[in-house]
């Protein structure tokens, strides 16, 4: 069965979000911004003023560093656009969502259902995953205009806050819904059923590593 395809605004209504199902394919219209560890630390830990009106301008936070450069005349050259893995940002996301009203968190690989249930659902937000990963050129085609780049002096081009006007940017996959269900956990659960069979005929290493046991008095042998 082919997945459903849906065009969504980066300022989505609660009704827009309620209709989305895990595994739907989404294309985005409107303004989005990139923010990852650099932006989170500067805004939340260093308490710098966020240089955009959020969420009135955009409710879409992209975990992304684009392949982009600022030309000498100040204009932008944005080529490919791809997400980075989001689980590393769980530390900052609850506060960020509360502060900015983000409804769409867009990135690579999603978060855990625990994250979704504890702060996505109360904020009425969902998670969209990029596809591949690495549809950088397709996503790049969805960039209608680069509106601004903030904090590039302080954070460098890769960590800067890029403001992008999207026109049918995608594809993205709906990886969480308003109830906090997690697409990747659903898939993992299905795959796990087969794992015992795949591991038949293999053997654990004779020298263990910490992490395989949390008992630090363990000698790790045998």
């Amino acid at each position: 069965m082919k997945p459903r395809e849906i065009v969504l605004s980066t300022l989505p209504t609660p009704e827009d979000l309620a209709q989305l199902r895990l595994g739907d394919i989404v294309y985005l219209d409107g303004l989005m911004y990139t923010a990852r560890e650099g932006v989170y630390m500067r805004a939340l830990e260093d308490k710098a003023n966020i240089p955009m009106e959020l969420p009135s301008e955009s409710a879409a936070n992209f975990h992304c560093s684009p392949a982009a450069t600022i030309r000498e005349d100040g204009s932008f050259n944005m080529g490919a656009v791809t997400a980075t893995a989001s689980f590393r940002f769980a530390k900052w996301l609850p506060e960020w969502m509360a502060k900015t009203g983000a409804k769409l968190i867009i990135g690579k690989g999603g978060m855990s259902s625990k994250d979704y249930k504890s702060y996505f659902v109360p904020n009425g937000a969902i998670y969209l995953s990029t596809v591949g990963y690495g549809t950088g050129a397709l996503l790049g085609r969805g960039v209608e205009n680069v509106e601004a780049v903030h904090w590039n002096e302080e954070l460098g081009l890769a960590q800067a806050m890029w403001v992008i006007r999207c026109k049918r940017m995608g594809p993205f996959i709906v990886a969480s819904d308003l109830e906090g269900n997690c697409l990747f956990e659903r898939e993992n659960e299905r795959i796990s059923r087969n794992l015992e069979h795949v591991y038949e005929g293999t053997r654990p290493a004779v020298l263990k590593r910490f992490g395989e046991t949390d008992d630090r008095t363990d000698e790790l042998i045998g």
């Binding site: 560093s65 791809t82 950088g136």
Partner: peptide, 13 residues
């Protein structure tokens, strides 16, 4: 798309 547009295939280059 990458070849047509002559842009990087992935944003993480």
């Amino acid at each position: 798309a990458t070849k047509e547009d002559r842009r990087a295939m992935c944003g993480d280059t």
